[in-house]
Structure formats: C-alpha cells, structure tokens
Simulated assay, not measured.
Amino acid sequence: MLRRINQALPELLAGIVLYGVMLQVIGIWFVSDKEQYSIGLWAGVFLAMGMAVNMAIVIFDTVEEMAEGRSSRRASLYAALRYLAVVLAFGIVGYFKLGNVIVMFAGVMGLKVSAYLQPLTHKFLAAIQKKCLHGKD
C-alpha cells in the first residue's frame, strides 16, 4: 500500500527506523537515564514516520487534484497541521517529562537524514532484494 502512494516511502521509513536503531545502540551507552533517552528517541522516530506518511499522502492527493484541474489549499493546511502536531507532541513530552525532548528532536531529524540517504538506501535494498531473488552472483 505504501508503494502505491509513493515509490520512495517504504525506503524512507526504513531509513528512519535504521537511524533510530543506530542512535539507540550508540547513544544508550552515554546517558544516565536510559528510559528517558529511549522513550524520547522512539517518540521522535515514530513522529518522523508519521510525518513522512502524511507528506506522501498529501503530495499524492495534491498531484491528483492538480491533474483534474482543481486548485486546493489542502496541502498548506496539512503542512500547518503537521507542524502543529509536532509542536503539540514536543509540548506533551516536555511538560509531562515522558522522555528526553532533545533526543526526541534527534529522532525527528531522522526524517531529514533518511531523506538525504534515500538514494543509498534504495541501492542497498535493491541489492539485497536482487540477492534474495536471484541467488548469489
């Protein structure tokens, strides 16, 4: 289903999760409050994944509307709502001290890192898929 919305979305989500796993494995050794670190990190990672899916759906809908000759301000509305949701999530986590807000920000930045590394992620996943389907070359 995700591939139907956007060809790069599954690879983008895989990159976000991989980024989160790397931060978890590396960072957990350097913090004193491991629980706050982990909760903040994974809250940020899931927030980044939600943002990626939302952006892909909005882009898909906007392209369809433009192809039909309709003009829509829905993309701007969803962008504003997306950022409002991010600010609200940060506010909830910070106010109730559910997790580390700085690490949560690092988790959200996984969306940016994954977007920049998506071409490499695509090559890596394509090579793995080719090996699995065609055997070792």
Rank of each mutant, 00 (worst) to 15 (best):
M1F: 14
L2W: 05
L2A: 04
L2V: 08
R3K: 14
R4H: 09
N6S: 13
Q7N: 10
A8Q: 11
L9P: 09
L9S: 07
P10E: 05
L12G: 01
L12P: 07
L13P: 08
G15F: 09
V17C: 04
L18W: 06
G20M: 12
M22V: 15
Q24E: 13
V25S: 10
V25T: 13
I28V: 15
W29I: 14
F30K: 03
F30N: 06
S32W: 05
D33R: 02
E35N: 09
Y37V: 00
S38E: 08
S38V: 11
G40A: 01
G40L: 00
L41H: 07
L47W: 00
L47P: 03
A48Y: 12
M49C: 03
M49R: 05
M49P: 02
G50A: 02
A52N: 01
V53A: 10
N54Y: 00
I57L: 11
I57R: 09
I57S: 00
I57Q: 01
I57T: 10
V58Q: 10
I59F: 11
T62M: 03
E64C: 01
M66W: 01
M66E: 14
A67Q: 15
A67D: 15
G69A: 09
S71C: 03
R73P: 02
R73C: 00
R73H: 11
R73E: 11
R74N: 06
S76F: 15
L77I: 12
A79E: 04
A79V: 15
A80G: 15
A80E: 00
L84F: 06
A85Q: 03
V86G: 06
V93M: 09
G94E: 01
Y95L: 13
F96D: 01
K97V: 10
L98Q: 06
G99D: 00
N100D: 15
N100V: 01
V101C: 04
I102D: 10
I102M: 03
V103R: 05
M104A: 07
G107Q: 04
V108E: 05
V108M: 13
M109V: 07
L111F: 15
L111D: 02
K112L: 04
K112C: 04
V113C: 00
Y116D: 08
L117D: 04
L120S: 12
L120C: 06
T121M: 14
H122F: 06
F124K: 12
L125Y: 11
I128M: 07
Q129Y: 05
K131C: 12
C132F: 12
C132K: 11
G135I: 08
